[in-house]
Design a protein around this nucleic acid. Structure first.
Lengths: 230, 230
DNA sequence: ACAACGCTTCGATCTGTGTCGAAGCATTCG
DNA sequence: CGAATGCTTCGACACAGATCGAAGCGTTGT
């Protein structure tokens, strides 16, 4: 019965509502201070401090001290992907529990998943990339790679591939989208694409939330850049 | 702060050690009775009953009444995949906590992940399939599909594809292997392959555990069937 | 240097829930 | 039909841990 890794420890960490709120807030990818997270979770500073300590010990969070603030982020992209997977389960099994909030439609349209785009538009992007033969199954970490034509495409979009490859992080990774029940693109490339979209003013992040707003121009240009096989 | 699905509910379910043991035991894919699960988790029958009720309400388990027994399984393959992902996090972040048990090496070599093969040999198989161009990225559910040559290959191995496709379940899916940190093949095809291996007496499941033993003949034939690009 | 701010530690409280014994229902078997 | 088995419900207990007030420590700013 003591087979495999200790899954209960991590489950218990995620299982507390306050900590779950903290992790959800951090899924926005932004570094947040301890007090911001306390407000986000609806608890006092002291309580948050205790929770953050536990999350650190559990290896789910990374911190950066800066002056009298302490900024927290998710430890790495794997944590984000696992949380997104859990959200998929929760959304599906959650029956009536999760009454959809006001921001729900916007979240499903486009949101940030740690550091890359998720939601309807992200899935469209992934589909377009694969149907045009830009992605392939490989043995490199992440299990996904760019084809030659794919490399040309993203380079033409202003992305420096050699820079991305120099990092330890996998270039491409599939991440299960909880609202669409389909994969979208994560990894270093997924993050770089989101940065490019913001540079073009195609998308704009809502402050203090994971929601991403797509401008009319962005909507048009993104659909042109990532056409769907009719 | 109330963004997205209620992740805490599922986290709390997995977070209790007894329940985590139950879920881990069920990851073997076998249907187990309430008393078997109680023994597995090291608790009495009444306590197990309470846990099983909660897991049912949470949608993580499915049950089948049969005579005076109640057989439980994981609700679906998604639950299994999510648990495996959590194990990945736990193994990586668990620092020194998880002192590896006696069965650990065997588990890493080959084990059952809900209904398909996982571990070293499973990853080798996945690598071999992809490097020979049998798998491709697609838009169908699961994000992975068989190429024409891939279809010929598995059909030649005695697998009835039309039968598999008739089910609602995705044919191919990547599942993150916690011991190898790489993808292996899940989905209907992954399950069908494991069945074939057992029919050939290449692999034999250890009773009451997830461990899968590979016979000498199986080792030889599997390596021949799934060669690695040298 | 003093005050304000951000965060942590300590201590006390209190709710939630995991646990088991005993009793209660089914189902199966002799 | 009565006994045994598998499981659930009820009730009581105990412990873990979530919470907050108050105090302490370090940094920043005036």
């Amino acid at each position: 019965m003591k087979d495999g890794p200790d899954i209960a420890r991590i489950g218990a960490l995620i299982g507390d509502p306050a900590r779950a709120n903290i992790l959800s807030a951090l899924l926005s990818g932004k570094a947040l201070t301890a007090s911001e997270l306390a407000a986000e979770a609806g608890i006092t500073g002291q309580t948050a401090s205790s929770h953050l300590k536990k999350l650190m010990e559990g290896g789910l969070l990374a911190q950066a001290k800066q002056g009298r603030h302490r900024y927290f982020t998710l430890a790495d992209a794997d944590v984000g992907a696992t949380l997104e997977a859990l959200m998929g389960l929760a959304a599906r099994k959650g029956h009536l529990r999760t009454r959809t909030g006001p921001k729900d439609p916007a979240m499903r349209a486009a949101r940030v998943c740690y550091d890359h785009l998720a939601g309807h538009m992200a899935v469209r992007m992934f589909d377009s990339l694969q149907s045009r033969g830009f992605l392939e199954v490989t043995t490199e970490p992440g299990g996904l790679g760019l084809t030659a034509s794919g490399e040309a495409f993203v380079t033409g979009f202003g992305i420096d591939l050699s820079d991305l490859r120099s990092k330890r992080r996998p270039l491409c990774r599939a991440c299960l989208d909880w609202s669409e029940r389909r994969d979208h693109l994560a990894g270093a490339l997924g993050a770089a694409l989101l940065v490019q979209f913001q540079k073009h003013d195609w998308v704009k992040r809502e402050t203090g939330s994971r929601v991403v707003h797509i401008s009319p121009k962005g909507e048009r240009d993104l659909k042109a850049l990532f056409p769907i096989h009719s």
